[in-house]
Write a protein that binds this DNA or RNA. Structure first.
Lengths: 341, 341
DNA sequence: TTGAATTACGAAAACGATTAAGTGAGAAAA
DNA sequence: TTTTCTCACTTAATCGTTTTCGTAATTCAA
């Protein structure tokens, strides 16, 4: 930190007015004359004055700082493609509104350990956004049930605002498209069962198949972790080793779907001629390299932006903001990885 | 923010001691008896006390908060694979040491505009890490020349600690490997010329070729933006349209190299049989999908960790910390995208 | 001309924490 | 016994802002 800050006091001395007057002038209060305001502002500039966030926060109980909590099963942190896009969009919107973003420590190994809530209180976050975490974690529920404004992403709580992507529609669109391409032997490698996202995708998968009057054997529905290329490769091989293998396989996400690409290629087969592959998320690379992946492109931009907007609404008007679940639709990208049969 | 915080005052009342005693007890000062400390700590827990970062920062001039500044040409922000890995590693290390991470606003469109330096002073960051930015930006130099502890990544200033990846060695290793595979017609699509990274890679490219006694036509060295699949696709096509096309092409980064994959495939050719491709960075997807990319895998973990370590050293000991440029080597991943000739 | 309203500012407390300096009691040293 | 230390606290100032409540001077209404 700088040696010593230029403070209101310095300006007040230089201008021959009181500290209160300086504060009010800089905050554009109405009870300071135009001339005085201008003079004070000029001197402030000249002296190189910068407000002090700590002092302001202390006095006003407003930090203009939002806490971000993100933990995923793989601990991929910032390197998680889907989340990093959401966060990036969230950040942009929040910054436009004058908020900064600070991470809530997810590392539980650190010396000075604090619970998520403690951390949030310590930093005086005006609000917190929670994404992709294991929402059953007691520390998470503690945070959610606190009186700090919270918005959750991809998981809903009855008493909190949440932004979730439309997994029901996403899977329905995807499966319907695959069906329309002629596939009837459709397998689904879904992500970890204990997340809300997986649950809704899975139920939508079954429901859609039922509506389309497609029957699939139980062996077609298996589990693999999200974002894990090796595991999906393994599981893909098992599926293709079945006596009656599927003609199309859905994956937990695009990244995992690349594991499918690999497995299929390693068997000397090609996508989509021999086996079709569908991902989920629409990460950049999946949209850019051939065969372009058939997937649901998440509207990460909208998810992040909406989360920020709603959280800031909530911060500015804790009582008057509607608690709701906002569902954001993704769009089907037909791509090239699902072939016609 | 919570209604009203439990403060030292509340504890002091509950314990019948002075506020000073409570403060010292919680900070484990030596002039408080063991019994009193224990009693105070118990009451603090019971009351649900959390320290107040703002008050602490105000009083101590220490925020335990590090500012992160990152801007790249594409404004990819957090979604930049290389940077997000570096940042993730930086964050982990910093958090272990009790620091939080806050972004320095890169959005210049916001209402309440502040220069990077103003922002850093405003938040009272103990230190700042700067990465991948356009380092010629006057706001950046202002920040670098301030008295805030700074560590830069991938760009060096004579009076500041910097962490840079070993681009000289990286390109040398890469080109040498390609040479050993029998290639003599080696083209280089390099990134934007105005960055230090590009400069050192480019000079290493020329130097290595010279040492290997390889001559290439001027047309083999062209420019395309970093992380831009479309542009590299275009430029690749131009290279392959040359009367005497290269047998191997180096790209600005792995992401861009996928543009090469695409261009080559769209011509009905295959990598590496018809044309060889080399990337740079070693992003996860490049290491995972076939043909596995021949590239230099950056040690993002070490870069981030080292940056954090050095910055914290500098914060804790501004005078006594050696100003140095730390070079972090990457490792050649042979991969499969460069073939034998 | 007088009382009321308006304008432009100042004094001071408060937010929560830290810390230098001071204090009183008992223990140790002389 | 007197002096000197230690020990275990307390007092009070301070960090930089904000904000409530005054208040003096000026303007306005009647």
């Amino acid at each position: 930190m700088a040696k010593r800050m230029v403070s209101l006091k310095d300006i007040s001395k230089a201008c021959g007015v009181s500290i209160a007057t300086v504060s009010k002038a800089l905050n554009d209060h109405s009870d300071i004359s135009k001339e005085t305001k201008e003079r004070i502002r000029a001197v402030a500039d000249e002296l190189g004055y910068h407000p002090n966030a700590a002092a302001q926060a202390l006095k006003t109980n407003r930090s203009n700082n939002i806490g971000v909590l993100f933990v995923d099963e793989a601990n991929s942190g910032l390197t998680h493609d889907y989340f990093s896009h959401v966060l990036d969009s969230f950040k942009k919107k929040a910054e436009q509104e004058g908020f900064d973003i600070t991470f809530i420590n997810a590392d539980k190994t650190r010396t000075n350990n604090m619970s998520y809530l403690s951390h949030a209180i310590y930093r005086g976050f005006d609000g917190v956004v929670i994404a992709c975490v294991e929402f059953a974690d007691s520390e998470v529920t503690e945070l959610i049930n606190s009186n700090i404004p919270v918005v959750t992403i991809d998981h809903s709580f009855y008493n909190r605002i949440s932004i979730v992507s439309d997994n029901i529609k996403g899977i329905r669109d995807l499966v319907t498209y695959i069906y329309e391409q002629g596939h009837r032997k459709i397998a689904y490698i879904h992500g970890s069962e204990d997340t809300a996202v997986t649950q809704s995708r899975l139920s939508s998968f079954y429901k859609t198949l039922q509506e389309l009057d497609v029957n699939i054997p139980d062996e077609y529905v298996v589990s693999a972790p999200y974002r894990n290329i090796e595991k999906s490769l393994e599981v893909t091989n098992k599926l293709l080793d079945l006596p009656d293998p599927p003609t199309c396989i859905l994956y937990p996400d695009d990244f995992a779907a690349f594991g499918g690409y690999n497995a299929i290629r390693m068997r000397g087969m090609t996508v989509p001629n021999d086996v079709s592959v569908a991902g989920y998320d629409g990460i950049e690379i999946a949209r850019r390299i051939s065969p372009v992946m058939t997937t649901i492109v998440q509207d990460t931009d909208k998810i992040g932006r909406t989360a920020a907007t709603k959280l800031i609404d909530l911060i500015n008007n804790p009582k008057g903001t509607l608690i709701e679940q906002i569902v954001i639709e993704g769009t089907l990208q037909p791509g090239e990885s699902v072939g016609k049969i």
